[in-house]
Amino acid sequence: MNLFKSTVGRKILMAVTGLCLVGFISVHLIGNLSVFAGPDGINAYAEHLHALGPLVWVFRLIMLGLFAVHITFGVQLYLENRAATPDSYAVQKSLVTTFSAKTMVFTGLIILAFLLYHLLHFTVQITNPDISAHNLALDAANRLDVFTMVTKSFHNAFIVLVYIVAMVALTLHIFHGISSWVQTLGWSTGTSQDKVTAIGKLVAIAYGLAYIAIPLLLLARIVK
């Protein structure tokens, strides 16, 4: 199919899957912020999620598909683009592009590595078994104690550092992503271009700050 081979088709696939993944991190962020509401917030949230049963696995398969498409074509396009530029200039100058746009494949791979760690940490729970919800006592309302797992994890400076590095990479990644999907889908016009790009960058920074706030505020004991 042309969509999977064409230069524009793959660009559109990157934008659409990227947008879906931004949708995912939006919902995930709202869920995560419930940690600030204490055990009744995040433990109740976790229980509701698990109560969805098979739907959780449907959702996980969709996510796997989105990641597979986004990563496969992202790496493929990167390799093609590198092959198209075999020689560099003695004087290399960027006019308007951003650090974020130039490092998409690298920040993407950092996010992938983090994703695997994050799943082992909070989903499979094998990186820190002593403070994993599976091994902790249930909370007062007989729910898995996700709250204690999260807060204790983020009292560990090393884990916090890993999360912050990953969230900086995520912010850089979506800084370019959120500001350029409108162009890719062909919706931008000459006059809207700058505004759309600027709004995209602001939204990305807002996501980054919110995501980084969680481990940082827990580490600093500002939120308990």
Binding site: T7, V96, A101, S180
Partner: peptide
């Protein structure tokens, strides 16, 4: 025309706007 871009060895657009 977009197929010719790839066939001729040009890269793909990633919205750098350079």
């Amino acid at each position: 025309m977009t197929q010719a871009i790839l066939d001729e060895g040009f890269g793909n657009c990633t919205n750098h706007y350079e």
